[in-house]
Design a protein around this nucleic acid. Structure first.
Lengths: 187, 187
DNA sequence: TCCAATAGTTACTGATCTGTACATATATCA
DNA sequence: TGATATATGTACAGATCAGTAACTATTGGA
């Protein structure tokens, strides 16, 4: 049984927490849905919070890898890659299992900035900002920091709006806005 | 005791749910922090869910009234009022008790679109869209629907980002982006 | 003063929560 | 085969969860 039970737990817990929320998911539900015994879980993680932190670390890795890869596949130049972020978002939103951003939800359930789970969610956003900032710099825009933050505002807004479901095509709306902002920053 | 106990409960529960989250706030905590007996609570509301729905209705009323009023106080023309939305957001973010948008958090804890709490959150966003759409129409922009949705993407993004706290001035970034989008929609 | 509505107190149910104790099974490697 | 690590099953502790029952106190209006 070398293929780690710990990793299996984190992967399965990720899906369940994403679908069901953090407080609303009890350890007994994890036992029932993963088939992994509670004793094993508590051997790998001292507390539920530790498990959630491991889940968020995995999610951060998976999500950023996926997002960066899609942006590079769709766009060639830095400017195209920035615009491609919203194509990738559109793909994500159209998946049937889409339920919004796990980090926004984590920060909604663990609100205090000092809480480790909240802090981990903030770290994810910071790391993504780093990537977008680099692209904005390479696109030679005036004030790349501002443009990067503005594009990410559109991204977060689209994520929330896609989950709240009162808009038909938030990724498309965001992308059209992004193009205008990028062009304005290039002149 | 004409000044309704029911209203008092909803007002106090609003503050507690906003600060503490929905699942994380038990009825016993509400009893302890409001001083209202559990029997009274369950005389006014059949379930915790019913209480939450009443809280969200109040929040919708208070928030939209406040936002519309501030926009009208700060901006004269429809265009100025659209831009003023982000001044109002900045005021909100700087309040010490700021904890993000209650409706985003509600939809994060009650994820299924069919859930009454989720639906109520979506309704709030729809109502706000109606107001912004009317302003965009009165500002005589081309495609007011798209502009209204894009401005609201910036708004939701700023709200999330202000709560996740990795950005210094999300309302300012959003406002500068909003001005560019509005000007582009006017030409 | 009496009625009726609204409030509170206390104690409870049964379920579920996180986390643990303890004894047993299984798999790998020497 | 035997040692060690890792997994399991079951049962539990103690707290908390939403919601209820039965009874009492307070209030406003007629």
């Amino acid at each position: 049984m070398r293929p780690n039970k710990r990793d299996e737990l984190v992967q399965k817990a990720l899906i369940i927490f994403y679908r069901n929320g953090f407080h609303a998911t009890g350890m007994d539900m994890l036992v029932a849905e993963t088939g992994i015994s509670k004793t094993s879980m508590y051997k790998h993680f001292r507390t539920k919070e530790d498990l959630i932190l491991a889940v968020l670390r995995l999610r951060d890795e998976l999500f950023r890898n996926w997002m960066v890869r899609r942006m590079e596949e769709i766009g060639k130049t830095p400017k195209e890659q920035l615009i491609a972020m919203f194509d990738a978002l559109g793909e994500w939103f159209s998946k049937p299992e889409y339920r919004g951003c796990m980090f926004i939800k984590a920060s909604a359930e663990y609100q205090e900035a000092e809480h480790p789970i909240h802090a981990q969610a903030a770290t994810h956003k910071k790391l993504l900002y780093g990537h977008v900032l680099k692209l904005a710099e390479n696109a030679n825009v005036t004030d790349p920091g501002t443009l990067a933050r503005q594009l990410l505002l559109l991204k977060e807004g689209a994520i929330v709006t896609a989950h709240l479901g009162h808009s038909k095509n938030p990724a498309g709306d965001a992308q059209r806005a992004a193009k205008i902002l990028i062009d304005a920053a290039l002149s």
